[in-house]
Amino acid sequence: MSEPILKLEGVCTNIAQYHILQGVDLAVSAGGVTMLLGRNGVGKTTTLRTIMGLWRAHAGRVLFDGQDIAVLSTPAIARTGIGFVPEDMGIFSDLTVEENMVLAAASGPLDPARLDWIFAAFPPIRTFWKQPAGNLSGGQKQMLSIARAMAEERRLYLIDEPTKGLAPAIVATMAGALRDLKAQGASILMVEQNFGVAKLLGDTCAVMDDGRTIWAGEMRELAEDAALQERLMGLNMENA
């Protein structure tokens, strides 16, 4: 396995009086997909938001390519080359699909070749290019959210539950696009509740509970061990 591009060391995050993250240790390998798993409410989304600087870590280090980004502002973190797909998709409903994409290309105009690649991965983006993004269906909004992160080449993608609440056909489209992104050598840290998708895409995984990482290892190892799954996440996922 290659060197980690992102490393979290003992990261703690408080939201108001709540201690949400209580020492998260995590490594995302360069060019690999790391799945962040765990039950609801254990701190997976907070971990991604802390990496992006949307919540401030009050202890620990967030090392991106060796640089501690925990001290940077959110825009500065984004400009280091991190793309973020939030759980609520963060779509600008009053802007058109085109305007959403133009905005996502922060460093300049959209690259036509990259746009063609995005259109091939997500045909609805082309179909509804001039439509207000607020008119899209839930699945189409999720596609736009990921397409927006793909609008420019990023060194790391943080993706929060991309298949949540989607129809199986759209989950397949989403998984195909993410597999394509992975094939291009992208580093991805992804929160995912759909264990089937996690098995399909993940190289490594980390499992969280109660604001901490309680296990980290190869995705294959977890996928093949039903007892380990049950012990770590309290669910038997062998049929997932």
Partner: peptide
Amino acid sequence: EMVEALGY
């Protein structure tokens, strides 16, 4: 928040 996460 999302505008900032895009780097602006």
